[in-house]
């Protein structure tokens, strides 16, 4: 088990390095010059100033040399300084934003799991009945709706029209931070983030449960006179959860993408909003470090998902 975890962490590190190389190369090869971010249209730089800036940033070096210099800096624990945010250390910026993003994503996924699994069980058990159709229809809508559309429609309906939730931000300006205020601001974006995932989980759970309910051991349990509710809860649901756990793990990457949209619509001060601002402003140190941190989080979540298999299904031995 311990060896397996170490092996997975090692593989994760290799993937992170590959990811950082890819993002670094893409940023450098994208149209335009990184030094553009330093040019103020109202105060144009002279050619000498441009050259000096380029040399100071190491942008006059070949791309592989630039990458190695950046990696050396990162390994020393220095993620660099933001170009746009008063030269604040990137590590500090990320530390401030990881929490809100994890809170939003965690809440969204939790809601998605609770709704998706419950609805999936209900639909699976009542296959072909009104309740199944009634749950499947919104699930299809949820799966088909992109995060930005869901976010905007949700904002319009629940915040503008119904006034049930604030239209954005993480806390009410001027108020001392309270859990209640945080929950008021969190509820709508988390719910909207959960919709697509809940719908997907519901469909997987339904299909998996239907398959399990037709297995011999379920028939045996029924024939032994075990109560139907107990058959479903004890014998069917637990086994049906296995593919759903796989799904939850594999949708974490999509959840990050969804969180970026939700954060920008609701001005949620997380990694997604910071990443979008950094891309718009060509804040290369922030883009690189954010990608690395988000990638590390997704990889860590995937490892945890693998470990969760063993908990859900004792037949699986991790070694």
């Amino acid at each position: 088990m311990g060896l397996y975890i170490l092996r997975r962490i090692g593989m994760g590190c290799v993937m992170l390095v590959a990811l950082s190389m890819l993002v670094f190369a893409l940023l450098r090869l994208a149209p335009g010059d990184p030094v553009d971010a330093y040019i103020d249209p109202s105060a144009p730089m002279s050619p000498a100033e441009l050259a000096a800036t380029r040399a100071r940033l190491g942008l006059d070096q070949p791309i592989p040399v630039q990458y190695l210099a950046w990696m050396k800096q990162v390994l020393a624990g220095d993620l660099g300084y933001s170009l746009q945010r008063n030269h604040e250390p990137v590590a500090r910026l990320i530390a401030e934003r990881v929490g809100p993003t994890l809170l939003l994503m965690g809440s969204g996924l939790l809601v998605a799991i609770v709704i998706g699994v419950s609805a999936g069980i209900l639909a699976g058990v009542n296959r072909g009945r009104v309740i199944d159709v009634g749950l499947s229809l919104p699930a299809f809508v949820g799966i088909s709706s992109p995060a930005f559309l869901t976010a905007l429609v949700g904002l319009f309906v629940f915040s503008v029209n119904l006034g049930w939730a604030p239209s954005g931000g993480m806390r009410t300006p001027g108020l001392a931070p309270t859990t209640g205020d945080l929950l008021r601001h969190l509820a709508l974006p988390a719910l909207l983030l959960s919709i697509g995932h809940a719908a997907l989980i519901m469909r997987y759970m339904r299909a998996s449960l239907i398959e399990v309910l037709n297995q011999d051991y379920v028939r045996t349990a029924r024939s032994k006179g075990v109560r139907e509710r107990w058959v479903i809860v004890k014998h069917a649901v637990r086994n049906a959860l296995l593919p759903v756990v796989t799904l939850i793990g594999s949708t974490l990457g999509a959840a990050v993408g969804g969180a970026i949209f939700i954060e920008s619509v609701f001005n949620w001060p997380g990694m997604g909003l910071m990443l979008i601002n950094a891309v718009e402003n060509r804040d290369y140190p922030v883009i690189m470090a954010s990608t690395l941190v988000v990638g590390a989080c997704v990889l860590a979540a995937n490892i945890l998902t693998d470990l969760a298999y063993a908990v859900v299904d004792p037949r699986i031995k991790i070694a």
Binding site: P31, G32, D33, V35, D36, A37, I39, P41, E280, N281, R282
Partner: peptide, 8 residues
């Protein structure tokens, strides 16, 4: 293009 590319 974005402002930075334009300026550059």
């Amino acid at each position: 293009v974005d402002v930075a590319t334009y300026n550059g």
